[in-house]
Each structure stands twice: as C-alpha cells, then as structure tokens.
C-alpha cells in the first residue's frame, strides 16, 4: 500500500514539475506565428504542386499572409473559389483570375509529319531534344516521348497513340505549369480556358519560313498572315513566320480559322457550324474555303470527342507499354 502511495506521489510530483517547466519554456520561447497562416493553409488544396511559384502550400500561405495584396498570387489548382476563401480569411479583395489551361501547341500528327528517322535512345524529350531534331524534320514540334505526361501531378495530360501528341484533359488540368517547364521545346502554353472551354489557338510553334515549315509538316503555320488580316480585334501577331493569338484580345469570332490554309488554327469546344455554311456560299470566291471550313469543323468535332474520351485511348496505351516492357 505504502509502495503504491510513494510511487504515485513520485510520479505525480515529477509530472507536476515537468508541467511547470514545460509551461515556463513554452511561455519564454514562444514563436509568434500568425494564426491566419494555418487558416489559409487549410483553405488551400494541399497538392503541394508548386504551381503558384512557392515551395508548397504552406509557403504559399505564408506568402499570402505577408503580402499586402493578393494581386499576382494565385493557387492554380484551387482557382478562383480558393482564392476567394483566402481573401475572406485575410480580409483582402481578390481580383478573379481567369481560369487557365495547358495547351499543347503542336498538331503535327503522324500523317502530317512524316518520320525521317527512328530514335532509339533513352525515352525522354529532353535527351532527344539535346541529341537532334527529332524523328521528324520539324525542329520545333512535339517529340512525343511524354516528358509532360510524367511531369503532371494531376493525371491531366496523356499521349494520344493515334496522333503521337499529348492531349490535355480540360477538366483535370489545374494549370500548375509543370508540363510547361518539362517541355524542352516550349510547346505547351498556359492559355485562358475561355467561356465553356471555348478557345482558338494556333497549334504550331514552327518559326521556319513557310516553305520549309510546310515541307516538314503539312499542318504547320506558314506565317502567311491571312489570319492577321481578317482579325478585327488585333489579336493576332506574326513573328518569325509564326502566328500567335493573344487570348486576352481574341473574341472567339472564328474568322481566322476559315482563313488558315494549313489548318494550324484550331477552334476547341465550339459547336459544329451547320447553318453558316449555306449563306457563305453566296460570295462565290469563298465557297471552297467554306467547304474546307466545314470539313475542319467536322474534324474538330471528332477531336472534341477524342478529347472527352481521353480515358478510352488511355486504356489502349497502357497494355502496349507493358508489352514493350515485357
């Protein structure tokens, strides 16, 4: 009995002394930390992708709390809803940033870009890019080894075995920009997602002269500046034989698409144009172009379906990979 009392007493006293010590130490060496950092961190998605430019969600939260305003601070994964929450916590106004999406600006499909050599080195775009021009004659286009696919943390980008090009899943893409950094040829760009994901993009980055570019790839932008002339909003610039559409100026009128002789301008997620084809027949000179536009439209709608069904081709890819590995 005595033994139990003594041991209880000793333990109790030790505990009490330790508690007092710990309390004093905790008071004396207290680290002042803004409690809002924790709150902001809780509001963030916690993907730690680094897309915001900070080393992770915690660092971004600290950055937000320290900053005077939330301008230029954006969590690409959470987007506007997350930033509004962060703004509420910090009592700062948030300018709603347009959601962006990664766009692979190359449409050099297997048919358009004939293979000129076979690469059998290490399967990495970066290595292939440092070795030579690539399996096709285009020194700017996609190399197809999938560095962007392995860089993506969100399973949003996949190779399409039919075209040999990576395709971005709009739904999953958080525009963190990892694929942009991974691509050694700077083909991928973060562009405004657009209303209902509708956007118009020049799907080419070839800066060669028209004839050279066309020889390497039938879908290449040849810098003919037809699209620039037809654009009413000054959205299109031509530099180094390459057209570029400024997504902030583009009003999605689709006029440039009809003008493009090589089909390098892609319109994405637009409904197919049916009624417009008929009145377009009235001006005689445009009839053939209108037809080609219709064809392009049908091509696009088929593209759209492949875009939406990314999982299907994916299923086809995986077993193939296993075969090659085995």
């Amino acid at each position: 009995m005595n033994l139990i009392v003594i041991s209880l007493l000793i333990l109790g006293v030790t505990g009490l002394v330790a508690a007092v010590l710990l309390y004093i130490v905790a008071q004396k060496f207290k680290v002042e930390e803004d409690p809002r950092i924790d709150e902001v961190q809780d509001a963030l998605p916690g993907a730690n992708c680094g897309g915001c430019g900070y080393a992770g969600c915690r660092a971004f939260a600290e950055g937000c709390v320290k900053a005077d305003s939330l301008d230029g601070l954006l969590c690409p994964v959470g987007g506007a809803p997350t930033m509004t929450k962060v703004g509420e916590i910090l009592g700062m106004a948030v300018v709603a940033a347009e959601p962006k999406v990664a766009v692979v600006r190359c449409n050099g499909t297997c048919e358009a870009r004939p293979r000129t050599s076979v690469y059998d080195g290490a399967k990495s775009c970066q290595i292939m890019h440092s070795c030579y021009v690539g399996e096709t004659a285009c020194p700017f286009g996609c190399l197809g080894c999938g560095d962007c696919v392995s860089a993506c943390d969100f399973d949003a980008i996949h190779m399409n075995p039919a075209t040999g090009l990576p395709e971005v899943d709009d739904e999953k893409c958080t525009s963190c920009g990892k694929c942009v950094k991974a691509c050694p040829r700077n083909i991928i760009e973060l562009r405004k997602k657009g209303p209902k994901s509708r956007r118009i993009v020049v799907m080419c980055v070839n800066k060669d002269k028209g004839a050279v570019a066309r020889k390497a790839c039938t879908n290449a932008c040849i810098g003919c500046s037809k699209c620039q002339k037809v654009c009413e909003f000054d959205a299109i610039t031509i530099e180094n034989n390459l057209a570029y559409i400024d997504y902030n100026k583009c009003r999605l009128c689709r006029k440039c698409e009809d003008q493009c002789p090589t089909g390098a301008i892609h319109v994405v997620n637009f409904p197919p144009r049916k009624p417009k084809a008929e009145p377009a027949a009235a001006p005689v000179q445009n009839s053939s172009k209108a037809q080609s536009a219709v064809q392009d439209g049908s091509k696009l709608s088929s593209e759209k379906t492949t875009l939406n069904n990314v999982e299907q081709p994916l299923n086809n890819v995986e077993p193939k990979n296993e075969e090659t590995k085995a």
Binding site: G121, A122, S124, Q126, I127, S130, C131
Partner: peptide, 12 residues
C-alpha cells in the same frame, strides 16, 4: 541502360 544518354544530358 542508356546511361550515357542521361549523363550527357545532365552534363550539358
């Protein structure tokens, strides 16, 4: 293994 491919890329 394509050791040199990676080493060369890394060296560059």
């Amino acid at each position: 293994l394509p050791l040199l491919d990676y080493v060369r890329m890394g060296k560059a």
